[in-house]
Simulated assay, not measured.
Amino acid sequence: MPKCELDAIDRRIVTELQTNARLSNIELADKVGLSPSPCLRRLRRLERDGYIDGYRATLRRGRLGLGFSAFLGVKINGHANDQALSFERTVVAMPEVVACHLVSGEADYLLEIVVPELEDYQRFLVDKLLNLPIVREVRSSIAIQTLKAGAPLPLAHLA
């Protein structure tokens, strides 16, 4: 695991940005106790060094008509080959897939997919995922209610 070299001010910067990435540099500087110029230099360094991956809006799935979420455990035939890499590239490019993890246990991959409704899920599963030649088995769990998603990363271990 790479060593994390964030001092207390860097940690406050990333904590504040996880809460509200729309803060202006002046607002951010005020919250972390810096003047704007040093705050901006630190922010640019955090971006350049890969601590900050990007900025985006968190959208409400249901409000946008994406009320159906499922978690799919996918087993594939073979792992250390070009076909497995092709599977990964293909799945990552599918817009319905909002998360993809290589996992241990019964499944090889855990996918989170989001679609408008059950019929769209069926089309995704049958027409896209099960059409991939390397896919051996898919087990689905349907989300009944989302209690927490997209939460900020816990950073207490950095202190």
Rank of each mutant, 00 (worst) to 15 (best):
G33L: 12
V97G: 06
L147D: 05
G62L: 07
Y109F: 10
Q122N: 09
S24A: 06
L118I: 10
H79K: 14
A107H: 03
V98F: 06
L147H: 08
G54I: 05
F71L: 09
A159Q: 13
E106G: 02
L118D: 08
L23N: 10
P95H: 04
R56E: 15
G33W: 10
Y51D: 04
D49K: 05
D82I: 02
K75A: 09
I113S: 07
G67A: 12
L40T: 15
L64E: 13
N77Q: 11
L46K: 14
D7E: 07
E137T: 06
A21V: 10
G67L: 06
S37L: 11
I26L: 15
K3L: 09
F71G: 04
H79N: 06
Q83V: 12
R60W: 10
G105L: 00
D30F: 12
D120R: 11
V92D: 09
D10F: 02
N131R: 15
R139G: 02
R123L: 03
C4K: 14
Y121T: 01
R56I: 03
C4A: 14
S104K: 02
S24M: 13
D49P: 09
K31A: 15
A99R: 11
L110Q: 08
F87A: 03
D120W: 00
E16G: 00
I26R: 15
I26Q: 09
L28G: 03
A21Y: 08
L118Y: 11
R48V: 06
A80K: 10
I76E: 01
E112T: 11
D53S: 15
P133N: 03
V74I: 08
I113V: 15
C4T: 13
D82F: 10
V115N: 01
A8S: 14
S86N: 12
G150P: 00
L147Y: 05
V91D: 00
I113N: 05
V74R: 03
R48C: 05
A29G: 11
I52A: 04
P133Y: 01
Y51E: 06
S37H: 15
V135A: 07
R42S: 12
V97N: 08
R139D: 02
R44T: 14
V98M: 04
R41P: 01
G105A: 08
S35V: 12
L6Y: 05
D49V: 09
A84Y: 03
P152F: 04
N20M: 13
T15N: 01
K75D: 15
I52C: 00
L110S: 07
V126S: 03
R136Q: 12
E47Y: 05
N131Q: 15
V115W: 00
I142K: 13
K128H: 10
I13N: 04
A93Y: 00
V92K: 12
D82W: 08
F87M: 04
N81Q: 05
A159E: 14
A29L: 07
A149P: 02
T19N: 14
G73E: 08
V135Y: 06
P2V: 12
P95Y: 05
A80G: 11
I134K: 13
V74T: 03
L155F: 06
V32R: 11
V98I: 13
D127M: 02
A149N: 11
K148M: 11
V32S: 01
E16S: 06
F68S: 04
G54P: 12
I134T: 07
E16T: 02
V138C: 04
L147Q: 06
Q145D: 12
G150S: 05
L125S: 07
V135I: 09
R48A: 11
T90N: 04
L85H: 13
R89W: 00
V135R: 00
R41F: 08
